[in-house]
């Protein structure tokens, strides 16, 4: 089992993917419980975020000791009956994100990203939550031969 955060991190570290331009806006990264605390990818997760951004701002407790977004443990897919509780519990995460002043939050987890988008609405954070893959596709250098030529003519 390998998580894509690790794959992507290794691609960039090993130069299989080159970063053309880093993200200029302040960024931070969420540590999804199942990737970081229970997945052991704390370092790679943070380093991947740093590879991709010029102004990376760690959260307080970044890493293994980070707070949960309150969307985990099945809280997201449970749906309606849980919504009230998870928005309430997510206050801590919302404040954490606000504290960093980041405008973009990398969220390498489908659960967390839905939750953090909801939190952004609920607590008016004005942030954009994106997956790493989105950022990588935007920032990476695409080899010459892969770029379609017919557009230029």
């Amino acid at each position: 089992m390998i998580h894509s955060v690790e794959l992507f991190h290794d691609y960039i570290r090993d130069g299989r993917i080159k970063i053309k331009e880093k993200i200029k806006e302040p960024t931070t990264v969420q540590d999804p419980c199942n990737v970081v605390r229970s997945g052991g990818l704390a370092e790679k997760n943070q380093r991947l975020a740093q590879y991709l951004s010029e102004d990376f701002r760690p959260m307080k407790y970044q890493g293994n000791y980070n707070y949960c977004c309150a969307g985990g443990g099945g809280a997201m897919p449970i749906g309606g009956e849980m919504k009230k509780h998870r928005l309430k519990g997510g206050k801590v995460k919302a404040e954490q994100i606000r504290e960093t002043g980041a405008k973009i939050v990398f969220v390498p987890c489908h659960n967390c990203i839905d939750q953090i988008r909801d939190l952004s609405k609920e607590y008016d954070l004005g942030i954009k939550a994106i997956h790493f893959k989105e950022a990588i596709t935007e920032c990476m250098e695409i080899p010459e031969e892969m770029i379609p030529k017919d557009d230029e003519s």
Binding site: C33, G71, G72, G74, M82
Partner: peptide, 21 residues
């Protein structure tokens, strides 16, 4: 269901490492 995400953060801080989750 409503009060725990099984995130295990508490375990890291418990002196006995009690795994609440």
């Amino acid at each position: 269901y409503y009060e725990c995400n099984m995130c295990r953060r508490c375990t890291l801080y418990c002196p006995f490492g009690i795994d609440i989750a």
